[in-house]
Structures are given as C-alpha cells and as structure tokens.
Amino acid sequence: MGPPRRLAARTDIVSEGDRPGTCLVLIEGLVGRYKQLKNGRRQILSFQVPGDFVDLHSFVLGRLDHSMAALCACRIAPISHSAMQEILNEHPRISLAFLRESMIDAAVFRDWVVNLGQRPGYGRLAHAFCELVCRLRAVGQMKGDSFHFPVTQEELGQAVGLSAVHVNRVMQRLKANGLVTHQAGQLIIEDWEGLQRAGDFEPSYLFLGGDGGPAGEGASPT
C-alpha cells in the first residue's frame, strides 16, 4: 500500500472512462460514486465509508464506468494493480474476500434501487441514514448516537432522487417527528427504532454480522 494522500472536499477522485493503475482504500471521510448526464445532472449511486475500496472495479474491469468524488475532506491510500495481483497469487483466499466484497456491494446497489423506486421521500431518507449508521458503526466511526455528515442537501437529494427543496422538507419532518437532528455537520440519531420504522429498514443485506446488523436488529446505535 502506498502512502496515504489527502483530498479536499468536492474533489473528483477518479472519473468515468479512467483506467487507473491502482485501487484506492478510503481511510477517512466519505466518498460518493456517481454518474453524470450530459445535461450536468448527477445521480449518486452509493456512499463509501472508511475501510471500503473506492474503485476495486478498476482492478478487474480496467476502465471505470462511473466517477467518484470526495464528499468531504478525505484520506485515501493506493494499492497498485500489480501489488494486488501479487497478493492474490500468494494468498488465494484473499480472492474470496474480494469476491465477497463485490457481492455485498451488489446487494447494497439492489437495496438502493428498491429505495429509489418504491419508497416515498420520507422513507428514502430515513433508510439512507439507517444504512449509514450501521456501516459507520461497523468501522468505529459513530460517536455515541451521531456521526460526521457534511453532505449538502443537494448531494443528499442526488443520492435519494429528490430535489434539494424536497430534502429540506423531509429533514424538517424527520426532525419534527423526533427521529434525527442535523447540525454543525453532525447527524444525530434521536430515535433509532423510529428511524428504522420510517425507512422500513432491515439491515441483513449489509452482511455486517450474524444478527444482520452491527448493533443487533432493532437495537440502539449507541
């Protein structure tokens, strides 16, 4: 693994069509995978949290079919494709770990499709927050019942298919119902069980533990 490097917020890490010679591991921060239309509109496809490979696809496919951007100040570490190949040659069991990573990645994408296509805006946002709580807790990034979330309402809307105005309304409703509070770049979970109900959230698709979630199904994130 090469020396980590820092990226400023709202910086593109890799772009659609690139053929990088390294895979990047996110050490700190939050990254969004996205596709951008010719008219400039953007759809965020997933959030990547510390510990995730940002672009493992490039090792297998060569050319990237989507872009990735730092949504806040980030720290990433590169692993060259040649080093990756050496590791796999010397430790074949790691191939299974990478395959599992890809399968879980696909499971998360499937759940995002369901979230975008079948839940109302209120449920979409609640579900997205529940997923982040579970994933961030699993890698030790929760601070009690809150986590660092400096994402703008426009970016959040790009992830859940809502306008920034609609996101603002939904956030106000979540706050009024005592589920979450967003202040000073922190998202505070006020009612975990209520947030799960609002998002119709069931964490087994994340494969984070034998009970389907890092804190146990229905348990408090704290």
Rank of each mutant, 00 (worst) to 15 (best):
D191K: 07
G209A: 14
V31K: 02
V31G: 05
D211F: 12
S80H: 10
P150D: 02
V60F: 15
L71V: 01
V31Q: 03
A159I: 07
A219Q: 15
V170C: 04
F149W: 15
I27K: 09
V108S: 04
V108Q: 07
E90H: 12
H182S: 05
P50F: 00
V14M: 04
K35N: 06
L187K: 04
E190A: 13
E16T: 15
F98T: 09
V180P: 07
R119I: 06
G121R: 04
H66G: 00
F147C: 01
E16Y: 01
D12C: 10
L30E: 00
N168K: 11
G117Y: 08
D105Y: 15
F149C: 05
P50Y: 02
Q186D: 07
E193F: 11
S80K: 07
M142D: 00
P20A: 03
H166I: 06
P50K: 05
Q36Y: 02
T22C: 14
V114C: 06
F53E: 04
L162N: 03
Y122K: 09
G161F: 02
H57W: 12
S204I: 14
I44N: 12
G144W: 04
C72I: 02
R41N: 08
S58G: 03
D55Q: 02
Q186P: 00
E86F: 09
D191A: 13
G144D: 13
E202G: 07
L71H: 02
H66A: 11
G178P: 08
G210M: 14
D55N: 12
F47H: 05
G210Q: 14
M171W: 07
L30Y: 00
G218V: 08
S204D: 15
R137C: 03
R41A: 10
M171R: 14
R19S: 14
V139D: 01
C23N: 11
I27D: 12
T11Q: 11
G21D: 10
A184D: 13
A176M: 07
M103Q: 13
L99F: 10
D52A: 07
S102M: 14
H91M: 11
L56H: 04
R5C: 08
Q172R: 10
A176L: 07
G17L: 05
C74E: 03
A198F: 03
T181F: 14
Y205N: 00
R173C: 06
V113E: 09
G213E: 08
T222S: 13
V170K: 11
Q153C: 05
Q196A: 12
R135G: 01
N89F: 10
H166M: 14
R135E: 06
V165L: 12
E28T: 00
H127W: 04
A126S: 06
L88Q: 13
E217I: 15
N39T: 09
A97T: 12
V165G: 09
G210P: 14
